[in-house]
């Protein structure tokens, strides 16, 4: 690779790390602060990406879009759509234990993926949506990277403010001791729903930025693997409950993931076709190793005892019963 190629590679690596950082911050609000188990990140990411893609892409004969609208409108709608989706999911699942949320979110993400693939009139199916413009004249890769960093920093600052606010404290209190918070007269479901919706809109925003960065999207990018699993590994590795950790984890794991792509390039030819599987297997093993050896992540949450490092051996494991039972 020449120098300029290397530079270009570095910029694209950082840009994607930044987008994953935004996703990871969104998940941190849901899981890290509130203990909500969203494994449908891909769904919110996709809704965001397709919303802005359909609205801002150049007009096409093969599907309803593009409407050639300004990119800020597209991004705004991306945020609104992912928010609406999360309100619906949240409304159904907030009163139940988090396993149901997990199942519901993965279900929605799968259905969205099916819709993207099969509703050609709306999404152009597997051919994907091309010609998505760059926002605000951020045409050069470097300019776009700077734009992403600005968004990342803004989201980070907002999340830090949320964490330190009374609202953030209630969320953590709910995570640690639901009954205690209920006794204090707080409406737990409302707080949970708010956290879930805000986190999901951040994911939708990340999806929108992703679409504008690549200028082209297709359903493949929204497989649960890329958009959901990697984000989870990022947050857990970086440190759930810690916003800096969320970003650090996103950057590190994205480097590992991209690096593994380079490394599998050296595999013997007959293995090349399987390179994807090798990489997934490695990251899956990495996740288990982190969970077993450093569940608090690289940068643990700064609040005394975190959720995962609080041993309660004699009392037995904490048990939450679905509210419906």
């Amino acid at each position: 690779m020449e120098l300029s190629g290397l530079l270009f590679y570095g910029i694209s690596l950082l840009t994607l790390a930044g987008i994953y950082g935004i996703l990871s911050l969104g998940l941190n609000l849901q899981w890290g602060f509130t203990g909500q188990f969203n494994i449908g990140i891909a769904g919110f990411f996709a809704i965001g990406a397709y919303s802005t893609a359909i609205l801002t892409a150049a007009p096409s004969n093969s599907f309803v879009g593009g409407f050639d609208l300004p990119t800020p409108v597209g991004l705004l709608v991306a945020v609104i759509m992912s928010g609406l989706l999360s309100v619906v999911i949240g409304w159904v699942t907030m009163r139940l234990r988090t396993d149901y949320l997990a199942i519901a979110t993965i279900g929605i993400a799968e259905i969205i993926r099916l819709l993207l693939k099969n509703e050609d009139w709306l999404t152009n199916g597997v051919r994907g949506i091309p010609a998505i413009p760059k926002p605000l004249g951020l045409d050069s890769p470097l300019a776009f990277l700077i734009g992403i960093i600005v968004v990342l920093v803004v989201v980070y600052l907002l999340m830090e403010a949320a964490r330190k606010s009374p609202w953030g404290r209630v969320l953590r209190a709910i995570r640690e001791n639901e009954n205690g918070v209920m006794a204090a007269g707080k409406n737990i479901q409302r707080f949970r729903l708010e956290a879930f919706v805000v986190g999901s809109t951040v994911m939708g925003l990340a999806g929108g930025l992703y679409a504008h960065y690549f200028g082209f999207i297709s359903p493949e990018a929204f497989e649960p693997l890329f958009a959901t699993f990697l984000v989870w590994v990022m947050l857990i590795a970086g440190g759930s409950g810690n916003n800096k950790g969320a970003i650090l984890g996103a950057v590190l794991i994205w480097f590992v993931w991209s690096g593994s792509e380079l490394a599998t390039g050296y595999l013997p030819a007959e293995w090349q076709a399987q390179a994807g599987a090798v990489r997934v297997l490695l990251v899956a093993i990495l996740l288990q190793v982190i969970l077993l050896t450093r569940p608090q992540g690289l940068l643990p949450e700064d609040m005394g005892a975190g959720r995962t490092s609080d041993p309660t051996p004699k009392e037995g494991r904490p048990r939450k019963v679905p509210a419906g039972e």
């Binding site: 203990g35 494994i39 989870w232 904490p318």
Partner: peptide, 12 residues
């Protein structure tokens, strides 16, 4: 530690 960690572990 906590049963909810099992969710993410089983997903991985």
């Amino acid at each position: 530690t906590a049963p909810v960690i099992l969710l993410i572990s089983s997903f991985g």
